[in-house]
Amino acid sequence: MSKLKLDSLLLPLVGIAFCVLLWWSIAGKSITKQTKDDWGDVVTVTKRVGLSADLPTPGETWKASRDYIVKPFAKRGELDQGILAFTWLSLKLVAQGYLIALLIGTPLGFCLGLSKTFTKVCDPIIQILRPVSPLAWLPLGMVLFLSAKINIPGVGIYTASELAALFTIAICSMWPTVMNTAVGVRAIPQDYLNVARVLKLSKTKTLFKVLVPATLPYMFTGFRLSLGIAWLVIVAAEMLTGKPGVGGFLWQQYNALSYAHIILCILTIGVVGYVLDRLMSVVEARFKTI
C-alpha cells in the first residue's frame, strides 16, 4: 500500500522532472563575453545560444513569472494582472459560453434522441458544423454581432467581441453534450419506458421522472467533455478579440516578446483545465452510481 502511494507520487514527479530537463536542454542560454571590438575597446556582449535560442529556460521563466504568481490577484492595468485575476476573467467568460452551450445542447440532444425524423433532419448539419475550429467560428461571430451591444441589467454590457467570444465558445463546446444526451436517451432501457406507458404518465412527467433521470449519467459525460472544449476555445477567443484573460495575456506577451509569460500562461491553462476536468469527474461519478 505504501509502495503504491509512493509510486503514484514519485513516478509523476519523475515524468515532470524529465520534461523540465528536456525543456532546459533545448532552451537558449545567455552567454556573456568580453571581447575587443574593431577599435580595440573592450565590450560586453550577451548572446543567446542553444537549440531554440529565444526559448527561456525554466529558471528564467520562473524569474519572469514570479510577480504574477506570488501576487496572483494584482491589477496593474487591464492587460497586466496577476495570473489568477486573468484566470478568473477567463473562467467567467467560459462559464457564460458553457452555460449557453448546455441550455441549447441538452434539449437539442433530447430531441435527437427521441425523434428519428429530427435526427435525420439535423444529423448532416451537426456532422458538418462539429469539426469546425473555433478559429473559424470567431470571425463569423464578429460579423454576426458586428454592431450589437446587449445590455443585460445586473449582469453587464456585452460588446460585439464579447458576444462573438460567447458565440464561439457555445457553438464549439455544445456538441459533446448534444451527442451524449442523444445517445443516453436512445439507450434508456425499454423496461423504464414500459413503466411510463403502463402508468400512462403524461409527457411532462415521463420526461422529468423517467427520461431525464435515466439520461443523467450520459448527460454529465457530455457536460464534462463540453467543459474541456469550452476551456480550450477561450484562448483562441481571447487571442483574437484581445480581451483580458489568460489567452489575451498570452497573445499580448507574445507580441511584447516576453516569451517566459507564454509558458506561464500555457501552464496555467493546463492546470486549470485539469482541475475543471477533475471537478466534473467527481460530479459525473456521483450520477453514475444511481
Binding site: D191, V195, V198, K200, V210, A214, L216
Partner: peptide, 20 residues
C-alpha cells in the same frame, strides 16, 4: 386499446426506476 394502469403488470425483471 393500448397500455394503461387498469392492468397491473409484474415483469420478469422488476423494472423499478433505479433513481427512486
Amino acid at each position: 386499446t393500448g397500455a394503461g394502469p387498469d392492468r397491473g403488470i409484474v415483469f420478469q425483471s422488476p423494472s423499478l426506476l433505479p433513481w427512486m
